[in-house]
Design a protein around this nucleic acid. Sequence first.
DNA 1: GCTAAAACTTAGACTCGTCTAACTTAGGTA
DNA 2: TACCTAAGTTAGACGAGTCTAAGTTTTAGC
Lengths: 156, 156
Amino acid sequence: MSKLQSYEREAFETVERAPEAQAKGFATVRRAHESEMAEDYVELIAELIELRGEARPVEIAERLGVKSPTVTKNISRLKAAGLVRRERYRAIFLTDAGRELAEACRRRHRVVVAFLLSLGIDEETAERDAEGIEHHVSTTTLEAFEHALLQSQSGK
Amino acid sequence: MSKLQSYEREAFETVERAPEAQAKGFATVRRAHESEMAEDYVELIAELIELRGEARPVEIAERLGVKSPTVTKNISRLKAAGLVRRERYRAIFLTDAGRELAEACRRRHRVVVAFLLSLGIDEETAERDAEGIEHHVSTTTLEAFEHALLQSQSGK
DNA sequence: GCTAAAACTTAGACTCGTCTAACTTAGGTA
DNA sequence: TACCTAAGTTAGACGAGTCTAAGTTTTAGC
Ligand SMILES: [Mn+2]
Ligand SMILES: [Mn+2]
Ligand SMILES: [Mn+2]
Ligand SMILES: [Mn+2]
């Protein structure tokens, strides 16, 4: 019972972390945010291609909740990064690299959502929170989520 | 067994979400990122005050892994936001609003870390991932984490 | 096949968070 | 107490990601 509720204010005294370790943590977060745009776009593009056969800027903008010039600019960034293929005024498709990234992101997204649902969280909240959380989940943590998911399934 | 491993590629067909709901999810993520700087700073400042009696820009910079002009600029933003109090060339202190925000963030941070640890994740990874995840955890999800934590503790 | 509407792009602006270079202040030590 | 060094600030640049306004292209309906 000594560690019980150790995350609560009462039972907690501030432990001093190594400055470099802490800095590395923040750097990792900043790096995750740098890839976030690309990940969300290719994930969405892959879904639209699956559903519609192509991904149109107008629907990307609608589902991302941004204006179309934002999509135009970001798509050209993705193109420069070798993730999408496209000609002006036409639909957007993924390159091999883009498809690969999209598949990894979609799988990670589904694991995070499924894990949150397994905790009893409602679908809307699970999807909303997962949209941010997914970019900060390391391989280690993703595996822990999958493992916990299997446990919760076998335990009914 | 029908839903078993439903998060895996094989068993999954793309479900179409409502565009507005999806857009709201992305908007929530963008909003979280807007408050992230303030949250991380006040959290760190509170810890330094507890450990050292004051928070110095030099240590904030070191622990955040950024250069000191970045800290100067961001601290002045926090001051404009009414979260910190300070005079030029002196240490930084929190206002009541800053202290309140810091406490909420510290508690949330601790819950997320404790939850990840309870999944069997190592400390370094838990701290690293939590630094990003914490900003995307809704009240609902935070409560689910706490609940799961209690379960795992009672179950040994 | 024309034409109006929808989709898309371009141009340009803005905020945020980072940086480097150069300057100023504070404080410990000789 | 004077000075040197460490700490902090200022100035200015930059990239990312958003926007609005205005232009261009495509497309669908008549
Ligand atoms: Mn996302
Ligand atoms: Mn984030
Ligand atoms: Mn954080
Ligand atoms: Mn934190």
